[in-house]
């Protein structure tokens, strides 16, 4: 019997901005979502529907205004700031649309960064970073700074960085949004590999219906509510 483990458990998540002010804004209106370990989920929806807002809550970057959230069994809503940064460091790997590599810092150092915050030793850090950069086929560009890399290369470095502390979940917010379809394809292949070979739970935000179709489950968000859920090809 296959044991199912809930990785992400959102219950009645509400997010409001400008609380208590006349322009108070409710972006998420009670989201319920469970994601099992090893799932590859994509979230689609029009711009401004609240995808990034939801992703930030999943990634423990932000707290919901209301609702309960357990990540791998840990209560995120009631965790202290320091615990949240630990969760982000150990359990989550972020991949952003705009790469967000640290400038004037080599690809290698960028990948080392999460391990540095984890307090890993220099030698182990270096070894792991090199290994990860090899995995994303960036071995020959390790010492280059971000401004010397193409968009696709930057995103591959960013994925290597997200994988640094071997997190359970990878959260990717439009990782191919700034890339041409061929380069985007390459990035998607890496995600599939991570999902299939390493069993990573992946949540992917995308505007591309095509890319969403290849994931296991497709969630459609509209005006802060999940209005649709269906299975994809990658199931």
């Amino acid at each position: 019997m296959e044991e199912k483990q809930t990785m992400i458990d959102l219950k009645g998540i509400v997010k409001r901005f400008y609380i208590g002010m006349p322009n108070e804004l409710e972006i998420l209106h009670g989201i319920d979502l469970q994601v099992e370990r090893g799932e590859f989920v994509s979230i689609v929806g029009s711009s401004g529907s609240g995808k990034t807002t939801m992703m930030n809550i999943i990634g423990a970057l932000d707290r919901p205004t209301e609702g309960e959230y357990h990540l791998d069994g840990v209560d995120v809503v009631h965790a202290r700031d320091k615990e949240l940064s630990m969760i982000r460091n150990q359990k989550i790997g972020f991949v952003f649309q705009t790469y967000n590599l640290i400038s004037r810092t080599s690809a290698l150092k960028n990948v080392e960064l999460p391990m540095l915050y984890a307090g890993m030793r220099k030698k182990d850090r270096l070894e792991r970073a090199q290994e990860l950069l090899c995995m994303v086929e960036m071995k020959d560009r390790m010492s280059h700074n971000p401004d010397e890399l193409s968009g696709g290369q930057k995103q591959r470095v960013a994925i290597a960085r997200a994988m640094a502390n071997d997190p359970a979940i990878i959260l990717a917010d439009e990782p191919t949004g700034a890339l041409d379809s061929k380069t985007g394809r390459k990035i998607m292949d890496i995600f599939h590999r991570l999902n299939e070979e390493q069993g990573k739970t992946i949540v992917l935000i995308t505007h591309s219906q095509e890319l969403a179709e290849e994931t296991g489950r497709i969630l459609t968000l509209k005006d802060g509510e999940i209005i649709g859920e269906r299975r994809g090809r990658g199931c």
Binding site: K82, M86, F94, F96, N100, L101, I102, Y117
Partner: peptide, 16 residues
């Protein structure tokens, strides 16, 4: 600012 945000996303505690 963005760099600081990124570092925080990667798990940097405030103290660091």
């Amino acid at each position: 600012t963005r760099e600081i945000g990124t570092r925080k996303a990667l798990g940097a505690p405030n103290s660091s």
